[in-house]
Nucleic acid binder design. Sequence first.
DNA 1: ATCCCTGCAAACGATTTGCAGAACA
DNA 2: TGTTCTGCAAATCGTTTGCAGGGAT
Lengths: 125, 125
Amino acid sequence: MIQRNTRQRDTILAVLERAEGPLSAPELLCRAQQDLPGLGIATVYRTLKLLTEDGRVRSVNLDGESLFERADLPHHHHFACRVCGKVFDLDVCPLALPQGLAVPPGYLVEGHEVTLYGVCPGCSA
Amino acid sequence: MIQRNTRQRDTILAVLERAEGPLSAPELLCRAQQDLPGLGIATVYRTLKLLTEDGRVRSVNLDGESLFERADLPHHHHFACRVCGKVFDLDVCPLALPQGLAVPPGYLVEGHEVTLYGVCPGCSA
DNA sequence: ATCCCTGCAAACGATTTGCAGAACA
DNA sequence: TGTTCTGCAAATCGTTTGCAGGGAT
């Protein structure tokens, strides 16, 4: 649990606020260092872990790497561009029946993750 | 492209054949070493890469790690247990509309990945 | 006898952890 | 002032790569 407010935590949260999609820890570090040079990668990871435990941040797995986004975003999923590798938020959930899925009996579904792969507008030009 | 048949490649493929779900490279190594002690992790990765390029194996990303499965399996998705961490194959695609998704114009969808999270029968007991 | 393939070990990138000093409350 | 936090560096873990020897064709 987070117990104190610090410049690094404010900065990390601010970067997440203005992100256009989920960010990896190294990417987040890169952006945050523009506001707060000297910030260390360890602090980024420690802060992300605390924020996740606090329920303020959520992690999504994509293309083998962990990306982080604010947890207060409305339910959505992601689109990963095969060309430039960028990840975009989609404001739709293509999963028609979040619950009534035909899963074998005994499996308790608590959540789902949907990722679409393809080419983004910028790369298809 | 694979050009020669070797004991290690046969073994790796055999392990994938009898897997109940996608496997990570370290997990695959562990199982394969029971048939072929001395097998190295580098060979596992190199073989998986070649098999993927050959279209015989496919990789799925889940929980931040890359898992591998045979590419000749019918279209399906995965269920990841939050308790034991195991991944199971689901023989259904909960994605009702593989095509007509409400993605913003300009995005070309070439594929999708769906993962359900929850508790498996073994862990809910 | 080629030349591909393998094992070992070093290299790498992402993530975690130990430790001493810096900074909130 | 007392802890919590932070930065640095070392440690870990998954993955890749270089190299010399072994094996398939």
